[in-house]
Design a protein around this nucleic acid. Structure first.
Length: 218
DNA sequence: ATAATTTGACCACT
DNA sequence: AGTGGTCAAATTAT
């Protein structure tokens, strides 16, 4: 029902990136399933929702997502959206992502990325996806990319720390650069790698010419 | 017509 | 039993 141009919404996005692998919830307690079968790591990114457009519209990370479900979570007044890589059908991209609005901060969207993208391999998309930059790093990856491809030359980027309102495990973090990541599968049992690199990426919309959108229509 | 989104129900795990 | 997650069918949008 809404047909708001996504391209415009991307302007002025603030991204808070926190990488964190392995959580204590669920499987880690028993240490059974955490063997190595499910290496699904989850990265939690916080983004400020734009004042315009759908507040639940997640930022473009350079990949197309297909919503496959929405569920209401206890504790949250807002429902959680489940997205999957559109290429999963064509490329089997295991990448998934969930978008949840913080009840405490409706202006913040908590996007949880699960798994990495494996698309980009086949160049079936010649003129599609001009965004080269967005690439997750080799492991540990930082999925945070900027849609400002053409604006790469733009120097209006600012990295600053974003809030910590929850004051939970997300204690204060210093600004960092891209996560380095060293997690790997398996070994981690017991390894305390609760590190979280947080970085905020503010896209300056100085360059309107930046093509943030990639062909979505078919 | 195709593809994506929507909503509900089902399933799995805790 | 409850919650969270996924699938499936229907609907809507492109």
């Amino acid at each position: 029902m809404d047909e708001a141009p996504k391209s415009l919404i991307l302007k002025g996005w603030k991204l808070a990136f926190s990488s964190d692998s392995m959580r204590g919830s669920g499987a880690s307690s028993q240490g059974d399933l955490t063997s190595r079968l499910e290496v699904a790591e989850r990265r939690v990114i916080r983004v400020a929702v734009p004042e315009i457009g759908n507040p639940e519209l997640p930022p473009d990370d350079g990949h197309t997502w297909r919503k496959y479900g929405q569920k209401r979570i206890l504790n949250s007044i807002f429902p959680r959206g489940y997205y999957r890589c559109t290429h999963q059908k064509s490329y089997q991209c295991p990448a998934k992502k969930t978008v949840q609005r913080l009840d405490v901060d409706p202006s913040i969207l908590e996007v949880t990325y699960i798994n990495h993208h494996i698309c980009h391999l086949s160049s079936t998309a010649p003129s599609l996806a001009p965004p080269p930059p967005p690439h997750l790093l080799p492991s540990g990856g930082v999925v945070v990319n900027h849609l400002l491809t053409s604006a790469a030359s733009n120097s209006g980027k600012m990295w600053l720390p974003l809030s910590t309102e929850t004051g939970e495990g997300d204690a204060e973090y210093g600004v960092v650069h891209m996560a380095d990541t060293m997690f790997n599968s398996g070994g981690a049992a017991g390894t305390s790698n609760s590190f979280m690199d947080l970085l905020i990426f503010q896209a300056n919309a100085k360059d309107d010419s930046s093509v943030i959108r990639h062909g979505i229509n078919l």
